[in-house]
Simulated scan of single mutants.
Amino acid sequence: MVLAQLGGSISRALQQMSNATIIDEKVLNDCLNEITRALLQADVQFKLVRDMSTNIKKIVNLEDLAAGHNKRRIIQQINCWEFVSL
């Protein structure tokens, strides 16, 4: 039951980001906050969740992306294992 709720919460957070017209820092932070909340409610260790969030922000540096890049696509293509490896 907990795994289904976690999956649903993460899916909703990603769907909200996908529905956003413009992907900016606020949209990314909102998405990460929802995912963080869902993981903590599922009893994932705080340190792992914090590290994941920090690593995502390092990988997806929206300010450094050129104007022509599709930010939504770049965020969606990030492999979750990259978060842990940084």
Rank of each mutant, 00 (worst) to 15 (best):
V27F: 00
K26E: 10
V60D: 08
K58G: 04
G8E: 09
T36H: 12
I59L: 06
G8T: 11
K57C: 11
L40K: 13
C31E: 00
L32A: 05
R37K: 11
K58M: 12
Q16N: 15
D30H: 04
K57W: 07
G7N: 09
I10N: 09
I35K: 01
M17R: 02
N19E: 03
F46K: 14
I56T: 10
S53I: 13
I22E: 00
V60Y: 04
T54W: 13
T21A: 08
I23P: 00
T54G: 08
R50S: 14
R50A: 15
A20P: 02
A42S: 10
R12L: 14
I35C: 03
D30N: 14
M17N: 07
T36M: 12
L40H: 07
T21V: 13
R12D: 13
A42K: 02
T21R: 06
V44K: 09
I56F: 08
A13Q: 12
A38R: 01
L39M: 12
K26T: 09
D51N: 15
V60R: 01
D30C: 05
D30M: 06
R37E: 04
N19T: 02
E25Y: 12
K57H: 09
I59Y: 04
L48D: 15
D43C: 08
V60P: 02
Q41D: 07
L14Q: 09
D24S: 01
G7P: 05
K58D: 05
D30F: 03
D51Y: 06
L32Y: 07
R37D: 06
S11T: 11
I22Q: 00
D24Y: 01
Q45C: 09
N29S: 11
T21N: 07
R12E: 15
V44G: 11
N55F: 06
V60M: 10
F46M: 13
V44F: 14
A13I: 01
S53R: 14
R50I: 14
A42H: 01
I35M: 09
I22R: 00
A4H: 00
V27E: 00
A38Q: 03
L48H: 15
Q5Y: 06
D43G: 06
L14E: 05
N29M: 10
I59H: 02
G7T: 08
D30Y: 04
T36G: 12
M17P: 03
D43P: 02
A4P: 00
I10A: 15
G7S: 08
G7L: 13
R12G: 11
I59E: 01
I56V: 13
G8Y: 07
L14I: 12
K26I: 09
N33Q: 09
L40S: 03
V60W: 04
